[in-house]
Design a protein around this nucleic acid. Sequence first.
RNA 1: GUGGGCGUAGCUCAGCUGGUUAGAGCGCCAGGUUGUGGCCCUGGAGGUCGAGGGUUCGAAUCCCUUCGUUCACCCCA
Length: 428
Amino acid sequence: MSLTTAPRGTYDLMPNEALAWQWMEMIIREVFISYGYGEIRTPIFEHTELFLRGIGETTDIVEKEMYTFIDKGGRSISLRPEGTAPVVRAYIEHKLHGQGGTTKLFYLGPMFRQERPQAGRFRQFHQFGVELLGEEAPLADAEVILLAHDLYQKLGLTELEIYLNSVGCQHCRQKYKEALISCLWDSSAELCSTCQLRLERNPLRLLDCKNASCQKITSQLPSIHDYLCQACQDHFSQVIGFLDQVKVKYEITPRLVRGLDYYSRTVFEVVNTELGAQNAICGGGRYDGLVEECGGPAVPGVGFASGMERLFTTLEQRNKLPIFSRAPQIYIISLSDQFALIAFELTASLRRNGFKVELGFSSKSLKTQLKSANKSGAQLALIIGEDEWKDHQVTVKNMSDGSQTRVEWQELIEQISELITPQGVINE
RNA sequence: GUGGGCGUAGCUCAGCUGGUUAGAGCGCCAGGUUGUGGCCCUGGAGGUCGAGGGUUCGAAUCCCUUCGUUCACCCCA
């Protein structure tokens, strides 16, 4: 417990980084809106029950990672560990299914999971995502994947890999699970200890074990594609057909199984392989049973969630972040407290005319204040001292070449406007 | 929850097998310029060596505990 450090797994976003985040958020919103999605802002916390039902009681997320507490009304409340269940809850609560047709929603905000932090993993982290509800056609799956693809493209990330798979419907998945169990029963002793547990709890997870000896064994296993029913096969091949048509490159990975219980048929991930152990920046798929599971009508859905910290790291790593400057255009220097009033007034007037102005707060020596002006990155320094004061003028100094002129207070805005524009571009 | 690495100045780090007042670079402050920044020069401030305990004549250095951090496992964005 320390007063002077942020809680484990959390961090402060400092001003320069916050600019980059704002830029990311802007692009994300633009792309989502252009695809016809509307933003929804659900509460940061929900009734715990929602996540138990929505995510699955036996998933790690709800078993050991949720921030859960009892509020003063005796209700069990949890900070949201993911965004889909709350959106589905809101969809049901506002009876959006009653409006007919499909519903396209996106969200963006903090999520909370109590895990040990590591590269690309935080306890408070940020996700954005989309949910397309009320449509079971393969075209919906393809559109959601295309959306993710185009979004990363728009952010300048062209070299990401898309992994694609189908985990089938309840029926084919069940048959496949049984097949895995019977194939592995005899050799189970050769599996790593966690895989032995997986064999009992969730055999699909065996497929992406990182242990080399497990991989050797599981590489002999049949593919889930051999167990897909005709309808699931058709669905998958149509999704692929649409993606091919719009030249979205993907890799079919029969071993890709996603951890959350609610997925059915299409699942996909967008991966940055240079990211470390936690390299998925986006995960999603179809969840046809979820709305009903959460107490709504039997409405199909498909969507994805993307981790903003991992996305940010990727953008940084690949030099795709624009350079942001917080530098003022003009730095105002007053050489004595007796000129503070006029300096303050000139600052206000310049700001009201759209210039980005910084005012030195104390009247130190000119040298010191010019150093501050220099450090601030301002293009112009305005100096008000004894001489200027007497003549109702200011000295305007160009910080890049050191040249300076005297300007009447009355003409300042006009003169400055000839040197720089309110956007901060020098008029040459 | 489990395992490994790392905690020395605001930042990045050095400090060899224990041995005087714990160092460097960058940054910060002041001066070299009576009212002129960047470059250069000179000087200065700034450290309970993460914390607690132990071994020792002597600990930043060795041992134990603890906290923090980081990477990995589990799992996930």
